Simulated scan of single mutants.
Amino acid sequence: MRASESDTWLAKMISPQSEDESEDDILYNDRKFSWSAGYPHWEIFGGGTRVVATDALTSSSLFSLTEAVAEIIKREKVTHAVLIQPVIDILMKEQIAIKLKKIVILGTVGFRSVLDCVGKICDELVNMYGMVEFGTIAAGSYRVNDVNTYKHKVLSVKPLPGVELKVTDDNGHLVPVGDRGLIQVRSQKRFTGYLNHASRWVDQLVRTGWLNSSDGGYITTDGFMVIEGRINGLMDVFGLKVYPFQVENAIKGMKAISNAVVIPIREKETKFCVPCAAVVYHPGSENTTQNIQEYIREEFAFTKENPIMASVYVPQVVVKFKTFPQTSNGKPDRHGIAAEVKRQIDPKKYECIE
């Protein structure tokens, strides 16, 4: 069995379909799974008999983790590595001397700034996109010649052989090239559904062959797919629907910011929801709330004559974190972040939305 991540924080079990999986395989699990795109990679590839909530690289901070990773890469003469973007960012900023043939990023959104590592700490960067239900379904490869010509804020991918991708609206209708929407997947690989878990997306899969990925993105004019992030957590700001990743991706474009999560908070006086940004700065870097707000206005090309739209996308509150709390798969724990935001915001003006 495999376990899938879920927007409800309750894992869904998926029957194995791959020919390379055997019923004779036994994996003893005495704690929560340690995730990597749904798979306990570290423990299985390491020959372990137990899958635990944390692995051998658990560290007190992202910086110490990066130092440990760099030491392992140099000591073991590693040529290929799977890394998360914040680790790559620190390797670059601290000018840690490593050189790899290839770096692979997966399980998280890859931002354009990560391409700075190509030609410096690696010869090639590969951005992989997948789902537990289908495995790896798309990828994009970047070498030195691609860095200067890449124009999108988020890295793009193309489907692997046997996989189709499309972008639709909420009703399943195709949206024009360049318009944001829901990413749907159809693959020659098929799974039979979730164990004891009904899902309208599985019903759709049975009827049409297409599965909703729960991710948002758009098709570029040159035929690539830009994956922008999860569509869950849709914010209703002044009656307009805003995806958190739209604001998060813009904030992450700032050189001083390592990571950002946007959550809705409610103004007590007006009862309206407004965006709040939780940010992690690069070591030795910091910025003001006003500078962040001005940057977002420029990114979305808001003018003084259009204050309502600016209020929809520009964070009204910015909360600084040293590091984000993480889920067991290494992604930002939005529930934990929201709890800390609740402690830091002015309780007379705002309240968190449960």
Results as ranks from 00 to 15, higher is better:
I121F: 00
V126Q: 13
L115V: 09
K151D: 13
G110F: 01
H152N: 14
F134I: 00
G140V: 05
E124N: 11
I105W: 07
A139M: 15
V104F: 11
E124V: 09
G135S: 04
D146P: 04
G119D: 10
E133K: 10
G107N: 03
V114N: 01
N127M: 11
V132A: 15
V144P: 03
A138R: 05
V154K: 08
I103W: 04
G119Q: 03
G130C: 00
T149M: 10
Y129V: 14
T108P: 08
R143K: 15
A138C: 06
F111H: 15
L115N: 01
K102S: 10
G140S: 08
V118K: 07
L125A: 00
I105A: 06
G130N: 00
F111G: 07
H152M: 10
A139R: 12
G107F: 00
E124H: 05
K151M: 09
N145F: 06
F134Y: 14
T108W: 02
N148I: 10
L155P: 07
M128G: 04
V157D: 02
D146N: 14
G119H: 09
L115T: 11
I105C: 10
C117P: 04
T149G: 05
N145E: 14
Y129Q: 09
F111R: 14
L125Q: 06
Y129P: 00
I137H: 04
V144D: 12
K102R: 15
V147G: 10
G135R: 08
V109G: 05
V104Y: 12
I137P: 03
L106D: 06
R112F: 00
L115S: 04
G130V: 05
M131E: 11
G130T: 09
N148C: 09
D116R: 15
K102W: 01
N148G: 14
E124T: 13
K120R: 11
